[in-house]
């Protein structure tokens, strides 16, 4: 028993280590890609590492209260948890994580956990920009959840399962078994809402630098900010892995995972580089418009 737990803990640490580093590197790479698109040289790929280390070793940290203190913890816990409830690599014992705790619904709802904690921490900072950012973020989130939820429902209906592992298993055996091909409508809806989820342009109003410097994390500094940056890497990774598992056949090895998630991320960056930013109400209306209709269409197709 103890041995099992020790082994599981070890696997978990490995899995987390991989995803953290992958996430950080991915972030650095993409920043560079974005810079190239815009005709700049851009930061080094390892810049995220530098940022995190710098923030963590800052001598003073300012806290506005207990909830402010706990906010980043919640956030990171949310990111870690989300990742840990998703099996990262199909068939791998090390990267199976804690997927046995729950199915897709658990993952979808666990995303809220980190967001809630972060929002609470930001709220206690007392800075008006933080709640403004939070309000925008939440509003936008509730909107892009709709097409995503419809998409998930459609594929759950199609495959009669809600287990992520099961989804991956059912997509094995050839590229045409991927949901992107078996259920393109659901995939389109989900991929559009993924744009919102990753908060890049055109849905970057949450942290709109020109208006509300960086939104929710306005008051965050030192280790707090460091944790948030760590989380961004992990959480990004988790989301990418989730979408890969759901729509793109999952991964049977770490390599295929890296390739697939890289491509998915690249998609958001390219879209982000091509479009200007939406206002909050515009993005709400956008997500509740065409993407939702596509989602409904995907569901209706399953009902017939």
């Amino acid at each position: 028993m103890m041995k099992d737990i020790a082994i599981k803990a070890g696997y978990t640490l490995i899995s987390l280590f991989v995803i953290t580093n992958y996430g950080l590197l991915l972030g650095g790479t993409m920043a560079r890609v974005r810079a190239k698109v815009q005709g700049r040289i851009g930061q080094p790929v390892w810049q995220p590492y530098i940022d995190i280390i710098k923030n963590n070793v800052l001598r003073t940290g300012i806290s506005h209260g207990v909830m402010f203190y706990l906010g980043p913890v919640f956030r990171l816990a949310g990111g870690l948890g989300t990742y840990l409830f998703i099996p990262a690599v199909y068939g791998s014992l090390v990267f199976a994580n804690f997927a046995f705790s729950g199915d897709l619904l658990l993952v979808m709802y666990f995303i809220f956990f980190g967001q809630l904690g972060m929002a609470l921490g930001a709220g206690q900072s007392g800075h008006p920009y933080s709640p403004i950012g939070v309000a925008r973020g939440l509003a936008q989130m509730s909107a892009f959840e709709v097409p995503f939820a419809l998409s998930v429902i459609a594929i759950a209906a199609q495959y009669q399962t809600l287990s992520v592992t099961e989804f991956v298993a059912l997509q094995q055996g050839g590229i045409l078994n991927w949901i992107v091909f078996t259920n393109p409508l659901a995939t389109i809806a989900a991929m559009i809402s993924f744009l919102g989820m990753s908060m890049g342009n055109p849905f970057s109003i949450v942290i709109a630098p020109q208006e509300i410097p960086i939104g929710p994390p306005t008051e965050m500094q030192s280790s707090f900010l460091g944790m948030l940056q760590t989380n961004r890497a992990i959480f990004n990774g988790a989301k990418l892995v989730l979408f890969m598992n759901l729509y793109f056949g999952g991964a049977t090895s770490v390599l295929s995972m890296v390739v697939k998630t890289f491509l998915i991320y690249l998609y958001t960056v390219i879209v982000g580089a091509s479009f200007p930013r939406f206002r909050a109400d515009q993005s709400i209306r956008f997500f509740l418009g065409i993407p939702t209709l596509i989602g409904i269409a995907a569901v209706v197709v399953q009902m017939i």
Partner: peptide, 22 residues
């Protein structure tokens, strides 16, 4: 028939991932 949920495990994992960053 569709999925599964282990409230107990979720609780432990959550506590775990919470304590670690804290």
């Amino acid at each position: 028939t569709l999925g599964y949920w282990n409230g107990n495990a979720v609780m432990y994992v959550t506590i775990g991932v919470f304590i670690f960053p804290l």
